Simulated scan of single mutants.
Amino acid sequence: MSLYRYFASKNPLPVVTALDENHFGEQFEVLPYRQNPPIAAGGQIQKPNIYKVRGNNSEMFLNQLVDYIKENVEEQNRVEFWSIWHNEKVPSKNIYRVNPQQITIENIKFINENDNCCIKFFFKNNK
């Protein structure tokens, strides 16, 4: 079984590759996903722009993820971050909503503590 991590967004997000010479480093990648929706999502991912997120489950990865979100995620794009096992679904108790500009490592540490989870970077009343 494989763990999949995705960003799903209403609008395109910047791509980060291991070859990029930026502060994200070689451990962190955000790459376009070719299938829509990914098989791993169990039908839950409905956004048109989907990006696989690569990196190990380290403190460095979490820091890079927080930096990427703060720099590139805007609430109006209705961005979601999914961490799910192949062909499983995220239970509603593991779906969180966070302001992207105020996110901290503590806000996302649960991705290492839960098998299946989702962070939504927008609130329900936004369209």
Rank of each mutant, 00 (worst) to 15 (best):
A18K: 12
A18M: 03
N11K: 13
N87I: 10
L3T: 07
E106K: 15
Q44D: 09
F122A: 06
P38L: 10
N126Y: 04
E80H: 11
N77A: 08
P32H: 03
E59F: 09
I103L: 10
A40F: 08
R97S: 15
K124P: 06
D20L: 05
I103C: 04
V53N: 00
F61M: 14
V98T: 14
Q76E: 12
N11Y: 11
N63T: 15
N77I: 02
A41R: 02
N56Y: 13
G55W: 08
Y51H: 06
Q46V: 14
N125Q: 12
N11T: 09
S92M: 09
Y68S: 07
K52R: 14
K120P: 01
N112E: 11
H86A: 08
P100K: 04
S2G: 04
E75I: 14
Q76L: 03
N77Y: 07
W82R: 01
N57E: 13
P91N: 11
G25A: 10
V98M: 09
N114E: 14
S83M: 04
N49Y: 15
I111H: 02
N112F: 10
E106L: 12
N125I: 09
I108A: 05
V98D: 00
G25W: 07
N125G: 00
N77W: 03
N94L: 02
N56K: 12
V15Q: 05
M60W: 10
Q27P: 00
P12M: 02
A8N: 06
F110Y: 11
E59S: 14
I95D: 02
T17C: 01
Y51E: 05
Y96K: 12
N63S: 15
F123W: 01
H86N: 15
P32F: 05
F121N: 09
S83H: 13
Y4G: 12
K89R: 14
K127A: 06
D115A: 09
K47F: 01
D67K: 11
M60I: 15
I69N: 07
E59I: 13
V73R: 00
S9R: 07
N116V: 06
D20P: 01
K93I: 13
F81V: 11
V66D: 05
I69S: 08
G43K: 06
G42D: 07
Q44T: 12
D115N: 10
Q27Y: 03
S58D: 12
D20Q: 03
F110M: 13
N107Q: 06
E113W: 03
N114D: 04
E71H: 03
N107I: 10
G25T: 05
K70V: 12
K70N: 08
Q102V: 00
N72K: 04
Q64L: 10
Q76M: 03
E21C: 03
E88H: 11
L65S: 07
I119W: 03
Q44R: 08
S2D: 03
E75C: 01
N99G: 00
F121A: 06
S2K: 00
S83P: 04
L31V: 12
R78A: 05
N94P: 02
N11E: 14
V30D: 01
S2Y: 03
N22H: 04
M60P: 00
N114S: 10
N116F: 06
V98Q: 11
E113C: 02
K127L: 09
V98Y: 08
V73N: 05
I39D: 12
I105G: 07
